[in-house]
């Protein structure tokens, strides 16, 4: 029963955060400079009436609170509005693109985590300072490389450009993981276990990782948010027709209906990922 109560409480909290987040996103877009403008305003062929009509296209969005409430009502009825810049229903745009983004984010996260875990495990097992330094330098190098340059390099090597996401996520995951593992490895009970002859693999799998599972899960939740945010510039740079590219193009066009929808999606993913991580960590908590 308490599990269901906990779930229900977290779900309600998540919904509130998502709705508040959606509104805050709408406010940010509405009051950003350039809202209500359109590139067509520079087209010398357009008459004064046409220009006025272009300006009026966003008039319904000016009262942001009422617009947001109305948008939510439409959403509950199954519609997400129409994109001004792409002249298509937002729901259609999201359906066409979300699969692509989910796939590349999932792939990149899987690769980043697998490589990070492997390197941390290898460093732990071998106690090799040169290996550790190499990994630190490699992740430092990736942190210093612009995502655009990484994407270009990948394309030069005939690899998919979206793997630049791995370069964004991996160094952060690896850095945190290696510090967490390193700090936990210096705890007295680990030292004692090693002194008793327990193998490094067993130590890592049965003693170190369980001790830091909450942080790992938190890092997992956060890395999803990292990857989703990084997907925006990477997709825009590589011309991948995912949600990230949609978000970037809509941001440049100040396309409010699309931006609210995308923001809600990102916020929902982030909240659910982090809440899920917390839930898992809590459920496996040992009694104090």
């Amino acid at each position: 029963m308490s599990l269901w109560r906990t779930l229900a409480k977290r779900l309600i909290m998540a919904v509130i955060v998502i709705l508040v987040g959606g509104f805050l996103s709408a406010v940010l877009v509405r009051y950003a400079p350039g809202f209500g403008t359109d590139e067509r305003q520079l087209d010398a062929r357009l008459s004064a009436e046409s220009l006025q009509a272009i300006r009026d296209e966003s008039s319904a969005e000016r009262g942001i609170a009422s617009y947001y409430v109305e948008w939510l009502r439409k959403m509950l009825r199954g519609g997400l509005g129409d994109s001004r810049s792409m002249q298509k229903p937002v729901a259609q745009l999201l359906m066409e693109r979300s699969g692509i983004t989910l796939r590349i984010v999932a792939e990149s996260l899987a690769i980043a985590w697998m490589v990070a875990l492997f390197l941390v495990a290898a460093t732990w097992s071998t106690h090799s300072a040169p290996l550790e330094k190499t990994c630190t330098t490699a992740s430092g190098l990736l942190l210093c490389l612009p995502a655009g340059a990484v994407a270009l390099l990948l394309i030069l090597l005939n690899a998919p450009g979206y793997l630049a996401l791995v370069a964004v996520v991996f160094p952060k995951v690896h850095r945190y993981l290696s510090d967490l593992v390193g700090a936990t490895g210096r705890m007295s009970h680990i030292l004692a276990a090693r002194a008793k002859g327990i193998s490094e693999h067993r130590l890592l799998l049965w003693h170190v990782i369980p001790a830091i599972r909450r942080e790992i899960l938190a890092l997992g939740g956060v890395s999803i948010a990292l990857a989703l945010n990084a997907a925006i510039p990477v997709e825009a740079l590589c011309g991948i027709p995912g949600i990230g590219q949609l978000a970037w193009q809509s941001a440049l066009a100040r396309d409010l209906p699309v931006l609210i929808s995308v923001s809600l999606l990102v916020i929902a993913f982030t909240v659910l990922a982090n809440s899920g991580a917390d839930l898992l960590a809590d459920e496996r908590r040992q009694p104090a």
Binding site: P33, G34, T37, D38, E39, Q41, L252, A253, R254
Partner: peptide, 12 residues
Amino acid sequence: LDFPSLIQRISK
């Protein structure tokens, strides 16, 4: 500036 901000400044 990004283009919409630019248009806002020069047209509005």
